[in-house]
Write a protein that binds this DNA or RNA. Structure first.
Lengths: 132, 132
DNA sequence: TTATCATAGATAAGTAAAGTCTACAATCGA
DNA sequence: TCGATTGTAGACTTTACTTATCTATGATAA
């Protein structure tokens, strides 16, 4: 069990946008160069962020991807959910009569992690880095 | 990103052993029947639990798998680590000069989950179920 | 209307999990 | 000691998911 590399990329792209270009669109080409990954692959990942409503896409000359207006509120969890999906990390595969207590315990723990990821925004991290 | 089904099986096996057979060995055959999974697959998973020191294996007639003496202390995290390994869920793939702050945030959240899984023992859950 | 840029679909390669088979080693009981 | 029982280990196949590329299409600004 691992977070995918796409999630890693997504978090870095978001941090870059917040720090360097919170208002103007940046093309995939530029973003791909910054991260040293392929354009075509990155564009798929960015499309997921668009569909999740975290960023905006602008077609045409001088277009690219731009943050939405409420970008200060975007949390780590928002980005991770956009890429990895929102289904639980653990699903019991057995048919006990009632609900599975094992699953409950693991999901409880999972919620702890999600809470921490929800409390931390990309914007907050950006400020922290500029402070350094 | 998901917990593997092996982890699901492992947690259920451990709970079964704690509840039904804390002192005598149970063969793979019996365990596989209880969980309705294949023997060969289950045996691989059980070997991991043995190597992690969570259970004991006994060869020969009337052998099988038996809990260790300190089984009351085994946590969910112990079982999960035995199956999934102990490496972090998130690894930044970029070469920033110093350490990656994004990774730090995610690993922090991960530690929250691990703490919750560490605080809950299989034995505790077994008592809870018997109480029902 | 043309150059620029995102979107979507098909597809292939790489990797990890799930599952099976077979030979082997250890142990118990007679 | 012999043979039945049980776990161990390795090779192997299948399946599913992630990563990655290519190409055609759609939208927009200059």
């Amino acid at each position: 069990m691992k977070f995918s590399q796409a999630t890693d990329n997504a978090l870095h792209v978001m941090l870059y946008l917040v720090m360097e270009a919170p208002d103007k669109p940046v093309s995939v080409q530029v973003l791909a160069e910054k991260l040293s990954v392929s354009q075509t692959y990155l564009s798929k990942m960015l499309t997921k962020l668009v569909k999740a409503g975290l960023i905006h896409s602008v077609s045409g000359a001088n277009g690219g991807y731009r943050l939405k207006r409420n970008y200060e509120e975007i949390s780590f969890l928002d980005v991770i959910h956009a890429i990895e999906g929102t289904t639980s990390l653990f699903e019991c595969s057995f048919n006990h009569g009632q609900q599975c207590l094992i699953q409950q315990v693991v999901m409880d723990a999972e919620r702890q992690m999600e809470q921490a990821l929800k409390n931390k925004t990309i914007y907050e991290l950006a400020k922290q880095m500029k402070g350094v």
